[in-house]
Simulated assay, not measured.
Amino acid sequence: MKKITLITLFASVLSNGFANAKNSDIEHLNAASASLPFSQIVRVDNTLYMSGQIGLTSSGKLAQGGFAAETKQTLENIKSTLEQHNYSMKNIVKCTVMLTDINDFKMFNKIYAEYFTPPYPARSAFAVKALALNSVVEVECIGAV
């Protein structure tokens, strides 16, 4: 009898969880000019999920000047995207950093500290083989509102 009760309870918890997920407040936030097949930010209830950003300038080309220039442009793009939707860097609680050369990590930290203040968001960093458009850095963020 206990097995059936536990199974019934587990099934009830799962179905209620899925029902609540269906009723979540989901909003896809995009600039009017966004034409790529992803959303800039997806807000689910009080959580912001940002698509990864690379160092593209307004001309659609990577920032010139190497790693530092691309990193600054990447973080400017994150800041700008947040501001377009009335959020700020203070809303960010987690960043995932992808670098094509892990030896750039120290320089990344220096630039990153110009955009975030203590207490810093949680963060992880990975060395990757390649990134879109031959970028050397990509940053993806999660925020809270």
Rank of each mutant, 00 (worst) to 15 (best):
L48T: 11
N134D: 14
Q73R: 08
V42L: 09
F38N: 11
K79S: 15
N86Y: 03
A130Y: 05
M50L: 15
S59E: 13
P118M: 08
P121S: 03
L48R: 11
C95F: 02
A144C: 04
H85F: 15
K72F: 06
N30C: 03
Y112D: 03
E27A: 06
I92C: 03
A130K: 12
S33C: 05
S33V: 09
E70K: 01
L131D: 12
N23R: 08
I102E: 14
F108K: 00
T96F: 08
S35Y: 10
I142K: 07
V42E: 15
S58N: 11
M107Q: 12
S39D: 15
A11P: 09
I102G: 08
F116C: 02
I4T: 14
P118L: 07
A31S: 05
P121K: 04
A32S: 09
P121T: 03
I102V: 06
E138F: 00
G52A: 13
E83M: 01
F67Y: 13
N134L: 02
L75W: 09
T5E: 11
P37T: 03
R43E: 13
E114L: 00
Y87D: 11
A11T: 14
V97S: 05
F108G: 00
F105E: 01
S12M: 12
K129N: 15
S12G: 13
A31K: 06
Q53H: 10
E114R: 00
I78Y: 04
T47P: 04
Y112W: 10
P37Y: 02
H28A: 11
L36D: 15
E140I: 07
S59Y: 09
V42C: 08
K129C: 07
M89P: 14
A11H: 01
A63Q: 10
D45E: 11
L99C: 07
N109M: 12
P119I: 09
N46M: 00
L131W: 07
N77V: 04
V93P: 15
A63C: 05
N46K: 10
E70L: 01
Y120P: 11
Q40T: 13
K110A: 03
D104E: 15
T71E: 05
A132E: 13
A68N: 14
T100P: 06
P118I: 08
T74K: 04
C95S: 12
S124D: 15
A68W: 06
F108T: 00
V137K: 01
A63M: 11
S124Y: 07
P121I: 05
K94N: 15
K22E: 14
S33R: 08
N134Y: 03
K72W: 03
V93W: 11
V97N: 07
L29R: 05
H85C: 06
N30R: 06
H85N: 12
I7P: 02
L82D: 06
Q64L: 06
Q73K: 10
T96P: 01
S124K: 12
N20I: 09
D104G: 01
A34G: 02
L56G: 03
L48G: 12
L131G: 07
A122K: 07
V44E: 14
H28F: 13
A125H: 02
S33I: 08
K61G: 04
L82N: 04
E138W: 01
G66R: 09
I26F: 11
V136T: 14
N30H: 06
P118Q: 12
N23G: 11
S135Y: 06
A32W: 01
V139H: 08
I4W: 01
A69T: 02
S51V: 10
Q40H: 12
N46L: 00
M107Y: 00
S59R: 05
P118G: 00
G55Y: 13
